[in-house]
Nucleic acid binder design. Structure first.
Lengths: 188, 188
DNA sequence: TTTTATTTGGGACATTTGTCCCACGCCCTG
DNA sequence: CAGGGCGTGGGACAAATGTCCCAAATAAAA
């Protein structure tokens, strides 16, 4: 449920340690509840999560919000916007303390061009995300109850995931009421 | 609704014209209804659509199937499997005559490594797909009726899209009955 | 042309999900 | 301590969606 990418973090860690990235990378820390990107706003940086968790949300009419994904260690934020040169497609908000490496978009694109290993890692990261996003979307339409249950079992992580029932419901794309029903009297 | 990518097609066309790809690329033609990939099966090639349309579907229990996307000119098939070295994540079937360039996975990865422009184009293709997949997933959860209507209006393309009502319903993630209700007596 | 299958459209009812509303428990602050 | 805000849990009813089934229209096959 929480996506991670140890490989990317390792690459960045090494590059930073070697001093190869010079001034283009700096560490930044965010407290819980802080907003890194606002859907529709332009962006100027790319972040690599060193530790902590963020949630990416999408909203259409400001009322309800849909949670696209939870991202943890090694995950990259803002890379899509850097690559496509488009405004932020989703809002990204921390749901725990967050430690990151921050890099401006130009440096990111540069690194992508010059560092073959990094390039391959980002390609794979995006491919994996695409698969996850697509299968989740499909499962949500195909399974309904079963998937909910399966997912809620998978929520062993739930205890580690500092999120509210409302957020879980947003993730499942249902209302809080419905979630409660599923959690409560399983039998009709 | 039907995704396309003129840029990629142009790049491949040029490479083929220049003869830079040698034997690694060949043209292949498929008739309507043919299956290029089967979900879960291993793959060995990557395809570039020259003309025609395919639908990518995902199924969980073989009963219902969810349509992930319709792909047209310039779109790439099998690139995710090549990059991640995983089995096909979805089934891909032609819904019209299809003309393609076919390339084995190794050559594809090679081209990705050697050709900066191609690399950038694929990166952007995947980023765009990710955005589309994610926003569609989100909208499907957030909008319900409105989105359906909006989408069905967008189905001006409907006439060009040789698909059945059942396929439209699969795309929307609803049953055929529900689709008919939405199309028919709009008012309760 | 007749027959058979596919596609389409819709009625009737069960099930699911959403909406509205209320209540309890917890934390925090005045 | 009292009151406000928030997260949680659930009852009751409305609305949406699925399931089952049937019928007309269209396309494909005999």
């Amino acid at each position: 449920m929480i996506r991670k990418s140890p490989l990317i973090l390792r690459i960045i860690d090494e590059l930073v340690a070697d001093g190869q990235l010079g001034q283009s990378v700096l560490q930044r820390h965010f407290s819980k509840g802080h907003s890194l990107f606002a859907q529709g706003a332009s962006t100027s940086n790319v972040y690599f999560i060193r530790s902590g968790i963020v949630k990416c949300t999408f909203t259409e009419d400001q009322e309800k919000e849909y949670i696209l994904e939870f991202l943890g260690e090694g995950e990259v934020l803002g890379e899509i916007e850097a690559i496509c040169k488009t405004p932020a497609m989703s809002t990204v908000r921390t749901i725990s303390e967050l430690s990151t490496y921050m890099m401006d978009k130009t440096s990111f694109l540069d690194l992508l061009r010059r560092h073959a290993g990094f390039n391959a890692a980002i390609l794979e990261l995006m491919a994996v995300r695409l698969v996850n996003t697509a299968t989740r979307s499909a499962r949500q339409q195909l399974n309904t109850l079963e998937h909910n249950l399966a997912n809620l079992l998978e929520v062993l992580e739930y205890e580690r995931l500092p999120c509210t029932k409302q957020e879980l419901a947003d993730y499942l794309g249902i209302t809080l009421r419905s979630l409660n029903r599923l959690l409560g009297g399983r039998v009709v």
